[in-house]
Design a protein around this nucleic acid. Structure first.
Length: 317
DNA sequence: CTCGATCCCTGGACGC
DNA sequence: TGCGTCCAGGGATCGA
């Protein structure tokens, strides 16, 4: 499933292969995962002027086909700042793509027949087609004006690759939710998903059910450091291909070979040989080592009925 | 604020 | 071989 490193991998591939291309026409099959399919006619005639990642989103920034000079293919796009996007009148419109669980976005020769689950195809000015394929349609596409994009991006979490120690600590230690839920929450950190949450918690030796506010400053900083190391390494290895992730060249990533926790239920921990366990935390499978990542003490189960024990704890207003 | 449940959707695993 | 059932999983949403 595409998380930050997988999306980054796809973005880099597309920057090499379709940046600067003009969209000539649009074909849409099933459209229930598209916010505003009727708007897609506006794609015709526009150039793909930039391709950026924002959390797990991909943004194809569009420019009037005749007007703006385009960054040459292969040039490295600058990191996207939320402020830049929020302000960004630089581009009048963008195509937002979220790959969901099983989405793929890749150029294809026009002669190659559509995959069974190809739902969108953009004909490019070099004869190829940029196709979106997604069996489960958990993905999302939207044609967004600058204003809509700014609205979309407002409230996004911190970039986990850029976030500093102070902000990371604040975002985690000010919350009473479990750390696993916080890592998965896109309004806390944008781009982290189940795999890299579990991998970073294993590396940091933190149990997924620990409460954010109960983490020490040191634990939070360790978690930030290993999360960044893992994400960066995974990007270098072009992501994890666990189910059917393929990059924009149709090639799988390699990072799944380096997983230490995710998907390893019953297999020995790489540190202590204790069998990895799987539990549901925050509604998601969570893999961890019960020895290296000690469980927190049982949370107070807030029960509703029961006895006279009134909380004489007054909230300051 | 935080949680769990539910829905979306299909392919793959599994049982018979 | 084929059919039925169960489940995963990002994210939105809703009620507790």
């Amino acid at each position: 499933m595409p998380e930050l490193p997988e999306v980054e991998t796809v973005v880099r591939g597309l920057q090499k292969s379709v940046l600067g291309r003009k969209i000539l026409s649009v074909w849409i099959g099933k459209s229930d995962f598209i916010d505003n399919p009727a708007e897609f006619t506006r794609l015709s005639g526009q150039k793909i002027a930039a391709i950026e990642r924002f959390g797990k989103f991909m943004l194809l920034r569009l420019a009037d086909g005749e007007a703006i000079a385009v960054a040459s293919a292969g040039s490295v796009a600058p990191a996207v700042e939320p402020a830049a996007i929020a302000n960004g009148e630089q581009y009048a419109a963008s195509l937002l793509v979220h790959l969901g669980m099983t989405g793929q976005l890749a150029p294809s020769a026009a002669e190659i027949p559509f995959d069974k689950h190809t739902h969108v195809s953009l004909t490019l000015d070099d004869g190829r087609e940029l196709r979106y394929t997604d069996p489960r349609r958990f993905g999302r596409m939207a044609y967004l004006t600058a204003e809509l994009l700014a609205r979309e991006v407002a409230g996004a979490g911190a970039d986990p690759l850029e976030v500093g120690a102070a902000e990371f600590g604040e975002r985690v230690r000010s919350r009473n939710a479990r750390i696993k839920a916080l890592l998965l929450d896109q309004t806390v950190f944008r781009g982290v998903g189940n795999i890299y949450a579990d991998e970073s918690l294993w590396r940091a030796k933190i149990h997924p059910a620990r409460v954010g506010s109960k983490l020490s400053v040191k634990e939070a900083e360790t978690l930030r450091r290993v999360l960044q190391e893992i994400l960066n390494r995974a990007i270098v290895m072009r992501g994890s291909s666990i189910s059917d992730f393929l990059d924009a060249n149709g090639e799988p990533g390699e990072y799944q070979r380096h997983h230490r926790a995710y998907g390893r239920e019953g297999k020995p921990c790489y540190r202590c040989r204790t069998p990895i366990r799987r539990v549901i935390v925050a509604g998601r499978s969570s893999y961890f080592c019960p020895k290296c990542q000690p469980a927190p003490r049982q949370r107070k189960s807030r029960r509703r009925k029961s006895n006279a024990k009134k909380p004489h704890r007054s909230r300051s207003v």
